[in-house]
């Protein structure tokens, strides 16, 4: 049983190693999906936050202190986010940027609130502000606003009569789809079907075929780009002649790659894309991002989060 002793020693030593070295810096946490399904977006947010911190440090930091960025990977999942929240709080960060997905931001909210850590996210779920924590700030439009606009666009602007709504099982997509369905009904539109697909399952033809039989004018998809592109491609392949309108999380270049030739004609409702922004500061930041990382920012979300961080830093 010497093994047990060795094991206990290992535990003890690793515990001792975890000493704390506190330098005189302002610590900023980034909570984002660095790996997993939304890795593309998460890395964009992380890069943007680090870039902004670097820009500040070049100017001498804030209040004479340098900025230090800590990243925690939440994989876009609620449980991992709760762990991340505790970890970041234990590192004594004063603010947290992120996360990309609404559920990850939601799950972390309470921990940050108790510790008095500021949080800013691009999450769009309406539940985010339900609790009314003072530490929480969002930097994008809430789902309900997007839903009102979407419903208005579908029902009044495009005059679609028969709308089929599709979402996946995630909280973001379910929340968005629920509010879009409600708003369409309010606007007098007709939701003929509300189905769910399993994210990543790739085979969406059964659901699409069912929708086909209902002769829709438009298909609204409230999920993420990795499924949206395939959904659009399979819609075309089944010969469903309906307009495709995607929610904001479809706004990613991969959507076009996945949908292929079918991408043409599909519409995605979102706040303006990075290069469409007219503000000078935004353009400058984007150029700096491209120079630093040698690639374009994946989408608006990274910029929105950097924006939230900028607001916090200015406030300090």
């Amino acid at each position: 049983m010497r093994k047990l002793v060795i094991l206990s020693l290992a535990v003890l030593i690793s515990a001792l190693f975890a000493g704390t070295a506190i330098a005189d810096t302002i610590k900023i946490g980034v909570q984002a999906p660095i790996t997993g399904q939304y890795a593309n977006e998460g890395q964009g947010i992380d890069n943007a936050a680090r870039l902004l911190a670097k820009q500040y440090n070049a100017k001498g930091g804030i209040l004479g202190k340098k900025l230090e960025v800590f990243t925690c990977d939440d994989e876009g999942q609620a449980m991992k986010a709760a762990i991340c929240a505790k970890e970041l709080v234990q590192k004594d960060v004063i603010m947290v940027i992120g996360s990309y997905t609404s559920c990850a931001a939601l799950a972390a909210q309470k921990t940050y609130f108790r510790a008095g850590v500021l949080q800013t996210t691009d999450g769009t779920s309406d539940d985010l502000v339900k609790e009314g924590y003072w530490t929480f700030f969002r930097n994008s439009n809430p789902n309900s606003a997007a839903a009102v606009f979407t419903a208005d666009y579908l029902v009044n602007f495009k005059d679609f009569d028969r709308i089929a709504v599709v979402s996946d099982f995630s909280s973001y997509a379910t929340g968005l789809a629920d509010s879009v369905v409600a708003e369409i009904k309010k606007a007098g539109g007709n939701v003929i079907d509300y189905s769910k697909i399993k994210s990543k399952s790739q085979n969406f033809t059964p659901v699409l075929t069912k929708i086909k039989s209902m002769n829709p004018d438009a298909i609204y998809f409230a999920g993420y780009y990795s499924d949206g592109g395939l959904l659009r491609a399979q819609q075309k392949q089944l010969g469903i002649d309906a307009a495709f309108v995607g929610g904001d999380a479809n706004d990613n270049e991969e959507f076009i790659n996945l949908a292929g030739s079918a991408a043409e004609g599909s519409k995605i409702i979102n706040v303006p894309t990075p290069d469409m922004l007219a503000y000078d500061s935004a353009k400058k930041f984007l150029a700096a991002y491209e120079k630093e990382y040698g690639k374009k920012m994946p989408s608006t979300w990274a910029l929105l989060n950097a924006d939230g961080m900028y607001a916090f830093l200015t406030a300090i």
Partner: peptide
Amino acid sequence: IAYIVFFAVMALIPFVSNNLWIT
């Protein structure tokens, strides 16, 4: 003896390390 050592170490952890390691 091995078990006693192991449990003693486990019981001591919270007093010698920080929150992260307690977690």
